[in-house]
């Protein structure tokens, strides 16, 4: 996989959702409600330091080929989770469970086959059963989330410093640089999603 830098891993998981459950499809509605209750900036994925990008979507009807009128339909709905990560998938799942176990139980916990127990280990084992492999992945850059955020923070800091030193005499420019040097070397950590 020469196009995918080493630190990245890719998760694609398809989890079945029972349409004919005892509650008349309430599980599907509950999952949709749990996903709808989280905004882009309020999702538990923001607290997972190894997650570049994560998406979740419910696939409850498959689109047939154009012109196909055979009426083939899905018997289960499916919860698709696609994530681009640093390091291993299990670390991401552990972080997610630690951040918001209620979100996990409100989504994957409602899917078919999820064990009725609490604990990150059950999420890991469940996602391992749902995971789809053999993908062709592409990543644009070889950096981790922390590296990207630090690089962007340094760029912003340097840009601000360049503007602030414009027109200053040599000694004042050097003093401004010295004052900002610590932040240039070690920028303040930014929460994922904050830049």
């Amino acid at each position: 996989m020469s196009r995918v830098p080493k630190p990245h891993s890719f998760l694609t998981a398809l989890s079945p959702i029972d349409r004919q459950d005892d509650a008349g499809g309430a599980r599907l509605a509950a999952i949709r409600a749990a996903l709808a209750a989280h905004t882009q900036y309020g999702s538990p994925f923001r607290e997972c330091p190894t997650a570049h990008m994560v998406r979740m979507q419910v696939i409850d009807a498959l689109k047939p080929a154009m012109g196909d009128t055979s009426g083939v339909h899905l018997r289960s709905a499916w919860l698709l989770c696609v994530a681009e990560l640093d390091g291993g998938v299990d670390d991401f799942l552990d972080a997610l469970y630690r951040t918001d176990p209620d979100f996990v139980h409100a989504t994957w916990g409602q899917c078919t086959g999820y064990p009725p127990y609490r604990g990150a280990v059950f999420l890991r084992r469940y996602i391992a059963r749902c995971r789809m492999g053999g993908e062709l992945p592409y990543a644009a850059f070889p950096a981790s989330v922390a590296q990207v955020q630090a690089a962007i923070a340094r760029k912003e800091c340097l840009g601000a410093l360049a503007a602030a030193t414009q027109g200053l005499d040599d000694a004042a420019a050097q003093a401004a640089f010295r004052a900002a040097r610590g932040e240039l070397e070690r920028p303040t950590a930014t929460r994922p999603g904050g830049l």
């Binding site: 999702s43 979507q57 760029k155």
Partner: peptide, 24 residues
């Protein structure tokens, strides 16, 4: 297919922004 939830660790940055920041 429509998405229900999406999260991006650096929403304000494009690929070029990131490439520039890493080079810088």
């Amino acid at each position: 297919y429509p998405l229900d939830l999406y999260c991006n660790a650096y929403p304000g940055a494009s690929v070029r922004d990131i490439a520039c920041a890493l080079e810088l």
